[in-house]
């Protein structure tokens, strides 16, 4: 039995928007274990508090994939987590660029053979970033979505609602959403749950879609996971947003697994079925 190689934590210098130089992004690399080289996986986290709530399970999944022979990079996007910059200075385009730069860095770092796949793995709004990055990437990428936000418009709306629910606890939420929209429309930032959201970030997120890339990005696979609590009478079918990916020529698979919405709760949550089935799903696409 080979000795396990521990994950490496470090900072990556990645470019900022044109003319603004570079800044440090926090990165955690899980090297492939046991001499396997199935391919590489880049994890793209969800936004704001969901990033913190999901850290533990993302790390567990990254380790499980590394044990199965994948190189996995967890990257904190600009202004998020332990990376440089303030959330309020982040833009949607910057984050898409971070995903592309992280993927390219990973490809070179692990000397990925041409036949081995690179997979973009996104949770919630992270899946929207993966989809956009896949549309801009120079080479085909496999995609792994965990409970993806199916549109940036809905994701932004839900995020702004956090402010409304917070105000409801103290006074009243009437008109809060309208006021927030008005501020953003006038180019001013708004504060939600301790995070400053710039008008640029809000408009970028609002336009984001979970649509597939064009034919130049094939062949490629999409594995889409949704979680549910075991309970009768719940929907079990594939979501309508999967269809365009099939039509675009992606080899798709929909997986419904038992587990909690761990990105919503700061308390300890476990999702062993999700982790196990994600490893199994990806192993079908990896280099032998």
């Amino acid at each position: 039995m080979l000795k396990p190689v521990p994950p490496e934590a470090f900072f990556l210098d990645l470019p900022l928007a044109e003319g603004r130089g570079t800044a440090r992004r926090f990165a955690l690399l899980h090297p492939p274990q046991g001499g396997h080289r199935r391919g590489a996986v880049l994890y793209v986290h969800p936004l704001a508090e969901e990033l913190n709530c999901s850290r533990r399970i993302a790390a567990q999944q990254a380790r499980a994939l590394a044990r199965d022979g994948w190189a996995v990079l967890q990257l904190d996007l600009y202004g998020c987590g332990d990376s440089a910059g303030d959330f309020g200075d982040a833009t949607w385009d910057q984050w898409v660029d971070d995903v592309l730069a992280g993927a390219e860095w990973l490809r070179q770092r692990v000397s990925l053979p041409a036949a081995a796949p690179l997979c973009l793995w996104g949770l919630r709004a992270g899946a929207l970033l993966c989809a956009e990055a896949a549309r801009r990437a120079p080479r085909p990428c496999h995609l792994l979505f965990w409970a993806p936000s199916v549109s940036g418009k809905v994701a932004l709306h839900q995020f702004l609602r956090l402010r409304a629910t917070a105000e409801m606890m103290s006074s009243g939420a009437k008109g809060v959403m309208g006021r927030l929209r008005q501020e953003l429309d006038q180019g001013r930032p708004v504060e939600v749950a301790g995070y400053m959201v710039s008008a640029t970030l809000a408009s970028g997120l609002e336009l984001a879609t979970l649509s597939p890339p064009g034919a130049g990005s094939l062949p490629a696979c999409l594995d889409w996971f949704e979680l549910r609590m075991p309970e009768p009478g719940q929907a079990t079918g594939a979501p309508p947003a999967l269809r365009p990916w099939q039509d675009a020529g992606f080899e798709t698979a929909f997986h419904l697994v038992d587990g909690p919405a761990f990105w919503q709760t700061p308390e300890f949550a476990a999702a062993p079925a999700l982790i196990e089935q994600t490893v199994a799903a990806l192993s079908r696409h990896g280099a032998p």
Binding site: Q158, R161, L162, T165, M168, M169, A193, A261, Q264, T265
Partner: peptide, 16 residues
Amino acid sequence: LGALPELNSMAVLALI
């Protein structure tokens, strides 16, 4: 609201 400590603003949003 105010009686269940678990019901913070993120939980209300998740509930909605």
